[in-house]
Write a protein that binds this DNA or RNA. Structure first.
Lengths: 146, 146
DNA sequence: ATCAAATATCTTGACTATCAAACAACAATA
DNA sequence: TATTGTTGTTTGATAGTCAAGATATTTGAT
């Protein structure tokens, strides 16, 4: 197993802590924005995933959210009661349901998406256009390995 | 209010969705790692904050975690029962308690910190040393505005 | 020195999120 | 057809969360 040079080790250590801080700050921003919307963070996240992939099976939705189908059943029940999502039977698999956003759900989804966009603009206001492009390119490489 | 050029707008939109994806992937990685430790994500996060700032007041800990002191009282009760943290009276303010990690809590904290370090190393393995330094520098600028 | 206001923590009640396990309906395969 | 696997639901237990109220202590203004 090859050893990293000491300097690389220190950079990685610093980066690790930066990532933790970055994550925490995004997280608390997200929470404070969501709390102003009448939905819980988990509910908003559910709307987000459905919004990016309409007519999604319960099973796949649960996987993408990282919860069990049991948890999801209850969550979707509540969102359906609020009129934000709707279940439709799967045409070819009668065990399955497809979940999608209602118009009301789509409105919330798009508003939240705009919040993300505004947040991104705000935090990158200290960067030049080139630096933003650079950051995005590096992020692409990182995402490939995750 | 100045309008951004169309191309900048598109870059920001892309970056916004990249950040969401980045956040989600870190989140699910973190959750899967934590679940293997017998602690909940919230409990691990509490240990992390205490670990970085031993002898912290309940009030300040609650603020850093983004929860009310009522929530924290219950959380610290449970961590204390597990032998991971300990409350000590504040020397100069008899209303206050200082919370710190026990040896057992420190062990868990350090192990988790190493997980973060390994994760960082893994995802940045596709980057050159210079790119890692570049990414870290850009992150520093972003963190300043958050 | 006294007293009102502010602060730090804890308690309680209500609600949500979560999982695991057991179950029912249906699909896929031997 | 009979068996095995998959999809979604239900239920019981535990944890996380907040708001509101209670208690003890400190601070600040008279």
């Amino acid at each position: 197993m090859p050893e990293l040079p000491q300097s690389d080790n220190m950079v990685l250590n610093a980066l690790s802590h930066q990532l933790v801080e970055f994550f925490d700050k995004i997280n608390s921003w997200e929470n404070s924005v969501v709390r102003g919307s009448g939905l819980s963070p988990a509910q908003m996240h559910t709307l987000e995933v459905i919004g990016h992939r309409q007519d999604i099976r319960m099973k796949e939705l649960a996987e993408r959210l990282g919860v069990t189908t049991g948890t999801l059943t209850v969550a979707v029940d509540k969102l359906e009661k609020k009129g934000l999502v709707i279940r439709k039977p799967h045409l070819h698999d009668r065990r399955s349901w497809l979940v999608s956003l209602t118009e009301k759900g789509k409105a919330i989804f798009h508003r939240h998406d705009r919040f993300h966009r505004d947040f991104t603009e705000e935090i990158s206001a200290g960067l030049t256009t080139e630096e933003v492009a650079q950051f995005s390119a590096l992020l692409t490489k990182l995402l490939h390995r995750m």
